[in-house]
Amino acid sequence: MNEFKVTLVDSLAFYQKCLRESVDENVFRYEMMQPLEGMWQYLNAPLFPKTPGGYDVVMASEMMGIWTPRKSIDLIESKIEPLRRTNIFSEYQQVFKESAQRFSEIGYQIPVDEFIANILLGDPENGVLMASEGYSGFGGIPGYIMLLVVPNDFNQTRLKSALAHEFNHNVRFTYEPFNHGDVSVEDYLVIEGLAEVFAEDLYGVDQRGPWVQEYDAEELAYTIEVMKDGREARGFDQVSAYMYGDEVAKEQGYSPVGLSRNAGYTIGYHVVKAYLKNTGKTIAEATVTPSKTIVKESRIFDE
Score class of each variant (00 low, 15 high):
Y92Q: 10
M227I: 00
G235K: 15
G137D: 06
S184V: 05
M33C: 15
E37Q: 14
G268W: 02
F138W: 10
S99A: 15
E218M: 07
L220K: 15
N170P: 01
V226T: 00
E219G: 06
H165Y: 01
F138G: 04
W67G: 04
Q93T: 03
N278S: 06
V257K: 15
N87Q: 03
M32W: 06
P210M: 03
A221G: 08
I76D: 03
S184A: 06
S240E: 12
A249T: 02
I119L: 08
Q207P: 07
F198R: 12
T174E: 01
V288L: 09
K228M: 02
I73A: 14
G230Y: 03
E225V: 00
L43F: 14
E62A: 09
S161C: 00
Y175P: 10
A249S: 12
L220H: 14
T223P: 04
D229S: 07
K273T: 01
N170Y: 04
G38Q: 05
L19P: 03
N262R: 12
A199L: 12
F198C: 07
A286T: 07
V288F: 05
I66V: 14
A162R: 09
L75Y: 13
R20P: 01
F167Q: 13
A221H: 10
I191F: 15
I224D: 01
E133R: 15
D123G: 00
M59T: 09
R84I: 00
L120E: 02
E303D: 10
N278G: 11
I76A: 07
T289Q: 03
G137Q: 03
V128A: 13
M243V: 15
S90V: 11
V239G: 08
G134E: 09
S90I: 12
V128H: 14
P177F: 03
E98N: 08
N168L: 08
F4Q: 08
P256Q: 09
K79V: 06
G127K: 11
G204P: 15
I283C: 10
D229N: 07
V171S: 01
I294E: 02
S99K: 12
A217D: 15
I80F: 05
L259W: 05
P142Y: 05
G253K: 08
Y222K: 08
T287L: 12
L129K: 09
L259I: 03
G140N: 05
V185A: 04
D216I: 06
H270Q: 14
V226H: 00
A199Q: 06
V185E: 04
N118S: 13
G230S: 04
V9F: 02
R231M: 14
N118V: 04
A199W: 10
A131G: 13
A241N: 09
R70Q: 05
A274D: 08
I76R: 03
I267W: 08
V171F: 02
L147V: 01
G181F: 11
P256T: 00
Y222N: 06
F301H: 10
I119N: 05
Y135V: 00
